[in-house]
């Protein structure tokens, strides 16, 4: 066991993947000498060289487009998009090419490309630096979309993403980059949780909170607070958004009978809508209350002095829990 921040766990995971497979490349803006603006790729260029850790021109479409070309040549590029709001220039390459080319080739082509995106708010940043664009990508067939919430998952999931033969959009909760936890780096891939499985991170009996990425920690705090009110709250970290581990979600909700979905992204047409709909379809007779959603308002992300009002926090989650029990 070793204590790592989430950022360092990602770094160690990438380092391990690069040691294991010489075809793994890291590419993005400032990922080389600087080590990335969040230092997630710190030291990799020094140890693996400029051919494998590539400081790219400042062009996100170029990053993904050339990563596709490198993958066609047999490489496994791990692309860093510097901030969530900068992924949109690359959206065309991700949606029209990366996601669809394997099908276009009737299976002849595999595109093992990872698109790492630091996501979410809470760091006092300027516009375009605090967004949660996951639903754009979960809506795009051909992509796998995952979000890590803690250092241990960061370490294993980034390696699983790199090993995966499908393109993976990998969301990293940027405000949790500095959170520390114990990580067992001695375990091999066979001992890791499956890449597409959700995990109950806190068992409970009365209500299920579904979250991923940065909101898992918030939900755990809410669960602890709710316990003082005598409510047993279960927290499920979805980990994989596409595919969704619906059996795990349904198992939890059928057991508790109540569910609140929590994400930073706007509620309207957000990922939570998919969860609510599916839970209603599959768990209808187990539900004591409608599935409730907690998330950002249907506005652009606000200036940072207002972000504490925008972001779901412990109180907003507990408020939803109360409303669920009020039914």
């Amino acid at each position: 066991m070793t204590t790592l921040t989430l950022a360092k766990a990602l770094n160690e995971g990438m380092r391990k993947a690069m040691e294991d497979d010489s075809k793994v490349l890291v590419m993005g803006e400032d990922v080389g000498k600087l080590g990335g603006v969040f230092r997630v790729t710190d030291g990799l260029q020094k140890d693996f060289g400029e051919d494998r850790v590539i400081d790219t021109p400042l062009a996100e479409s170029g990053i993904i487009g050339t990563a596709i070309g490198l993958a066609l040549r047999g490489y496994r590029p791990v692309c860093e998009i510097q901030f969530d709001g900068f992924v949109f220039p690359a959206a065309d390459q991700i949606i029209t090419q990366l996601a669809k080319m394997p099908l276009r080739s009737l299976g002849a082509i595999r595109l093992p490309v990872v698109v790492r995106i630091p996501c979410g708010g809470g760091i006092g940043a300027v516009e375009h630096h605090s967004e949660s664009p996951e639903a754009y990508f979960t809506h795009t067939a051909g992509l796998r979309v995952v979000a890590c919430s803690n250092p241990a998952d960061a370490y294993t999931m980034i390696q699983q993403a790199i090993r995966c033969d499908d393109p993976v959009v990998f969301f990293e909760p940027k405000r949790r980059y500095w959170d520390k936890a114990e990580v067992d780096t001695s375990l091999g891939g066979g001992d890791w949780p499956a890449f597409d499985e959700a995990r109950v991170v806190r068992p409970g009996a009365d209500i299920t909170l579904l979250a991923y990425g940065p909101m898992v920690k918030t939900c755990l705090e809410a669960a602890t607070a709710a316990e003082e009110d005598g409510r047993s709250v279960e927290v499920v970290d979805l980990r994989s958004l596409n595919p969704l581990d619906m059996p795990a979600v349904a198992e939890s909700v059928r057991r508790t009978g109540r569910c609140v979905v929590v994400h930073e992204a706007p509620v309207f047409s957000g990922y939570g809508a998919e969860l609510a709909a599916r839970i209603t379809e599959e768990c209808f007779y187990s539900l004591e209350a409608p599935v409730l959603r907690v998330g950002g308002p249907s506005t652009p992300y606000p200036p940072s002095r207002l972000e504490e009002h925008y972001l779901p926090d412990l109180d907003r989650v507990l408020d939803a829990v109360d409303r669920s029990f009020a039914f």
Binding site: L25, G69, Y75
Partner: peptide
């Protein structure tokens, strides 16, 4: 011979990435 690409110009980046792979090989 790569697949036909219908979105105008997308394939130019794929070609350059592929060429970067040739360099690395």
């Amino acid at each position: 011979f790569h697949l036909y690409t219908i979105v105008i110009g997308s394939q130019t980046l794929h070609a350059v990435g592929y060429a970067m792979g040739i360099q690395r090989d």
